[in-house]
Every structure is written in structure tokens, then in C-alpha cells.
């Protein structure tokens, strides 16, 4: 079977985001960008399923600017077989991303789509669930462990009180959580090989999807800054201080 893995280019998780002074957004000029960490986990899981003989082909797809190519090359270097870049410089909300992905699913007929549970820039946590709804498929969100068994998939999910296991008929959508696996690094030979792997370039118009945003960002502001308090000398001083502020 085929696995489709949507990957998003986002600010690197080590970078502290800075809000632009005109309040129009976060400053991404000259900032290090990387694959969304959850999407690395998705790519890794797809590769492991392929290595286990459960899947034949992995297709990575990204919706974003020309530079999202780099993100797709990373996915190819990790082990995806080919890539689709849906190029746009416009902002694409999760609903529109899900609609584009649904069209790609119709063309490629994967049995499994693995998305990240959230992208670390907009933190929406929506795209996978929306895609599952549009396709009328089951959804295994926040996956901690997955197991394919014939024409169904068991997904152990990270939920608020602990873990929950659900069984979904295939095809299905899975969204990844942090503990699913530890993504591999791409080796140098694989990075070289990835340059030769096929990458299709498309646009949202090719899929006839209206990507006009439904949400307008009016302003983006800094959150209130917390001031550092004071350091105390020892545990006795800590206890005294805690009592003084009524904490204990």
C-alpha cells in the first residue's frame, strides 16, 4: 500500500520567535526553518512500516512556498520515495490544506495518511482530523503506537488521562504524537540520493481548491512578559518566601 505523509516547513523549534513591530505577524526573515518536528515523526513511522513490509511507497507532500522543497528533500533523504510540492505564497489554513490533501488522496489512493498532530508555528491541531472528515475515513489522533493488521490499523493514542487504543478500518488518517518513534537523521549518501528522487510541482489551482482564508489575522502581539523575580539563598529562605506570598 501507499502512505501519504504531509510535511510542513516551519520555524525551527530551537528559534525563539519574534513578533514584528508592526504587529503583522512573526518575523521569519533570515530565520532557520525546518520540517515540523511532528512531521519528522510521521515520515519515520511511514519508513518503519515500509521496512516492515507493510507499505510499498511513501509520498511526501507539502503545501507552501518554493522553499518547502527543502523540507520535501529532507523527507526524501530520510526515506520517502517521491514528493509533491503544492506551491503557493499565500497563507493556507488547515481547512484548505485538508481539501488539497483530499484531492491528492483521490489521485494517489493511499491506504494511510500520516500527519503531525500539530504544526509548531500555528499550533492549530486540525489538519489530520479535517482530512479524515472530508474523506469519510477513521482518524487515529495523537498516536503513541500503531500496528497494521490486514485491512485495519490499531492506534494507541495519548489522551489526557493516559492511553486509549482504537481500531480503524483502512484507509485511515493517523496523526503523530511525540512518543511514536525517534526520527532518524538522513545520512549523507541518502541526502545525495534524494536529489534524484522525483518531485512534482503543482499549485492549489491544479486541484481546483479555493484556498481563500476564512480567518483574517488582525494583529499579532507579544504576550505579556513575565518579570524574573528574586533568587533566594537557601531552602529556609525559600520556605519563608513561599509562606510570605501565601503559596503554602
Amino acid at each position: 500500500m501507499k502512505i501519504l505523509v504531509p510535511v510542513k516547513r516551519v520555524i525551527d523549534y530551537n528559534v525563539k520567535p519574534r513578533v514584528k513591530s508592526d504587529g503583522s505577524g512573526v518575523d521569519l526573515a533570515n530565520v532557520k526553518m525546518s520540517m515540523n518536528p511532528f512531521d519528522e515523526i510521521s515520515v519515520e513511522e511511514a519508513i518503519r512500516l515500509k521496512e516492515a513490509g507493510k507499505a510499498e511507497e511513501i509520498i511526501a507532500v507539502s503545501v507552501g512556498p518554493q522553499k518547502a522543497q527543502e523540507t520535501l528533500r529532507t523527507a526524501l533523504a530520510m526515506g520517502a520515495d517521491r514528493a509533491i510540492l503544492v506551491m503557493t505564497d499565500d497563507e493556507v489554513e488547515p481547512l484548505a490544506v485538508a481539501k488539497i490533501l483530499a484531492k491528492i488522496v483521490a489521485e494517489e489512493a493511499p491506504q494511510l495518511v500520516i500527519t503531525g498532530k500539530q504544526a509548531i508555528d500555528d499550533d492549530s491541531n486540525q489538519t489530520g482530523q479535517m482530512l479524515a472528515a472530508l474523506l469519510g475515513w477513521g482518524q487515529g489522533t495523537f498516536a503513541n503506537e500503531v500496528e497494521i493488521d490486514g485491512d485495519s490499523i490499531s492506534v494507541k493514542r495519548e489522551i489526557d488521562g493516559g492511553l486509549q487504543t482504537v481500531k480503524l478500518g483502512l484507509p485511515a488518517v493517523v496523526t503523530t504524537d511525540l512518543r511514536l518513534n525517534e526520527p532518524r537523521y538522513a545520512s549523507l549518501p541518502n541526502i545525495m540520493k534524494a536529489k534524484k528522487k522525483p518531485m512534482d510541482e503543482k499549485t492549489p489551482a491544479d486541484y481546483d481548491v479555493d484556498i481563500a482564508p476564512r480567518l483574517t489575522t488582525i494583529t499579532v502581539a507579544e504576550p505579556p512578559v513575565r518579570q524574573a523575580g528574586e533568587k533566594v539563598e537557601d531552602v529556609d529562605a525559600l520556605v519563608a518566601k513561599l509562606k510570605a506570598v501565601g503559596a503554602i
Binding site: 488547515p94 481547512l95 491541531n125 472528515a133 495523537f142 493514542r157 489522551i159 476564512r214
Partner: peptide, 19 residues
């Protein structure tokens, strides 16, 4: 919560609404 985050986007897509 994990329950809300699991269900709401699915509702949004069915309604063609951006959550």
C-alpha cells in the same frame, strides 16, 4: 482537551468552517 481537539476539527470540516 484531547477529546475536544479530536472532535472539533472533524465537526469544522463537515460544516466547511475553519476552526
Amino acid at each position: 482537551t484531547t477529546t475536544g481537539k479530536n472532535i472539533a476539527p472533524r465537526v469544522a470540516a463537515l460544516l466547511d468552517v475553519m476552526q
